[in-house]
Design a protein around this nucleic acid. Structure first.
Lengths: 215, 215
DNA sequence: CTCAAAAATGTCATTAACTGACATAATTAT
DNA sequence: ATAATTATGTCAGTTAATGACATTTTTGAG
């Protein structure tokens, strides 16, 4: 799934995020990111289209961890149960924890750094595209179906909002969260946001034909 | 509501959009945008933080027209009826039509131009913030209420998706739409997406107290 | 209307983001 | 092993973007 290049990009992403958090976006140069990453500046610009987008792999990697969990979501399990189960046997590595903290801290800077928000929104758009696949699979519908895409959009929006809200509550208001709490908030929000019945167990299709109307 | 500077920015936005559509983003320079707008390049960079963001006022101005309509949405009218009514007595100027077409054409280029999508997503985020106000007012709830913000996020996502879908259908598949059709699609999508009962007439608050739980 | 304060714009120099061209190093595959 | 491919580095060059300061335009008080 991931190659050497993606790993290198993620490493750069961590260094860039750290520098952005320490000194701000405007006060961090491409040369500094390159130096911190042990790469030439030219390579940085081959990896990324702009300075800000250096943090995108970080956003996407934490999103990917969640995506992987949703991919394993069995059809006969509710979202609440599944996410609760997932957080019980959480496979987060120490690196994942560090990355998560970087993301959370970046999210609290979006108000001050509009360029960061643009990158975050792009990452959320990628999450939305991934949700299309998950929902289409779960409901046995086409990925082109407007209602599938609408549901993906609303659910992705909910996930984004939970991430933002929890990050701000944690960093700016010092609120503490357990993994269970986050899973529960996330499940609730997804449930409220979903425009198709994806959150509860899917009735098995005993006739072996797809459940939606016409061919 | 709008000042001279915003008007100037919008004018630049139109020229920039036209150039982007004609020659592509990479092949359009800041100097060209300045020349086409009859301004110095320095002023362009005072107006905009980046080349791509030159098109944002165009996105926001069409969004603003819709926002104005939603602001006039009476509490005792459903979203479907209101939007249908709005499109009947549509106040679109010729300039509005031209701007709308520019936006629609830009939206079809997002696949090829990721930077354009980032700007579009930023504009949609602004729409989301505006929706918070509209929903909070309509339901007589706080703008900080998570459920209000969630509803704003899902509804804004639906509006964005309709815009994108209709644009692509119109430009890339030559499909024709009447204003009524668009209003109807938009109303349906908003209805499906809304996580709070905003779409149907709001029961009048006969006791003169807010309908949500505590002070 | 007048004229001074303030705000917007222009000019020019400078920085820093980003690209192209080509050489070198590292991987891959045969 | 080594040829082919691919990734990275070096360096020069372009262009997006900013700072400093002069000039014009707008605003507003008298």
């Amino acid at each position: 799934m991931s190659n050497r290049r993606d790993d290198a990009r993620l490493t750069v992403s961590r260094h860039a995020a750290t520098l952005f958090l320490e000194n701000g976006l405007a006060e961090t140069s491409g040369a500094e990111i390159a130096a911190a990453s042990g790469l030439s500046e030219r390579t940085i610009w081959r990896y990324f289209a702009s300075k800000e987008s250096c943090v995108e792999p970080l956003f996407l990697s934490t999103a990917l961890r969640f995506h992987t969990k949703l991919r394993q979501w069995p059809r006969n399990v509710s979202i609440d149960t599944h996410l609760h189960e997932c957080c019980r046997l959480d496979d987060a590595t120490p690196q994942d924890m560090i990355d998560g903290l970087l993301v959370v801290r970046l999210l609290t800077r979006m108000e001050a750094e509009p360029a960061l928000r643009a990158v975050w929104l792009s990452a959320s758009h990628q999450v939305e595209q991934d949700m299309i696949d998950i929902i289409a699979d779960r409901l046995d519908r086409s990925k082109k179906d407007f209602d599938v895409r609408l549901c993906a959009a609303t659910v992705a929006a909910a996930m984004r909002l939970i991430d933002e809200t929890i990050s701000i509550a944690a960093i700016e208001h010092g609120q503490q969260f357990t993994t269970e709490q986050i899973a529960q908030e996330m499940a609730q929000a997804i449930r409220k946001a979903s425009t198709l019945p994806i959150c509860d167990p899917i009735a098995p299709n005993v006739f072996g034909v797809s459940s939606h109307s016409s061919p």
